[in-house]
Amino acid sequence: MFISIDHVTKDFRRKPGALDEVTLDLPAGMIGLLGSNGAGKTTLMRIVCGIIEPTRGRVLVDGHDLSDRRARRTLKKTLGYLPQDVEPYPNLTPVEFLDYIGVLKGVTPRAERRRQAHELLDQVGLADASRRRIGGFSGGMRRRLGIAQAMVGGPRLLVVDEPTAGLDPEERIRFRTLLARLGGERTVILSTHILDDVAQTCPYVFVLRDGHKTFAGPTTGLVDEARGRTWLTAPQAAPPVDAIVVNATSTTRGTRYRIVTRTPPADAEPVDPSLEDGYMALATKETS
């Protein structure tokens, strides 16, 4: 599936310019969508899913313009979407919930919906909870059920919005592994502000900031934004001025700062950049 986002702008009454002239071509496979809160990630994903329409610009899926109702309907037949903070109907069991989503996605007959429901619950590790009501599920279990509902009908495009936010480390790693496994055969757009999730799973990434695209390319390319500019300072009392501090480690002799800057202190040593450094370097490049 080939998705092309062409000069897309979205104005809301309370937030004009939520997206501003965003142009992107999305390749197949796992794609990370990075950006701070309010950068426009969720808006862009809702547009790609055909849930809302852009104010200007267009989205083409396999060459079909989503402004056309039939194209939107065709896309939705092959789409799985997991929004942020999903809370499925608490009175249903997971099997009943997935069956309902199967009905909406046009999966027939009932036996096939039930087969898919059990298979997906098995995949996301909820087979043992298949008879329990969703209302009693933990946050992690609800997220896993959320990804299962997105997978009903075998979608070619999977869009997931901050799926690991608020999960404990074990659940996060399990969820990340699951997403990476799903990405093999389809296009998966993973929106997050947890950089580690993207570093571990997405070979391609794009970055939004205040409604504008600031980077699109291989994840290694974003890391390269900080190459030659990432340093670890000697222990000292205060962080260097004119540098972006990525993290800090306390030692008995003071604090060592990991910084991104073009003008490092004399006693700083160069280190290999990470995705976090690249992201911060990009942010400083934009603001400078």
């Binding site: 809702r46 899913c49 939705k76 979407y81 929004p83 809370e87 499925p88 109907y89 989503i101 909406l104």
Partner: peptide, 19 residues
């Protein structure tokens, strides 16, 4: 809508009047 269920349902091919 509080549970984001409206978004999940809106991402399916079934038209809003039918839902």
């Amino acid at each position: 809508s509080r549970r984001s269920m409206d978004e999940i349902e809106a991402s399916t091919p079934v038209a809003p009047p039918v839902r």
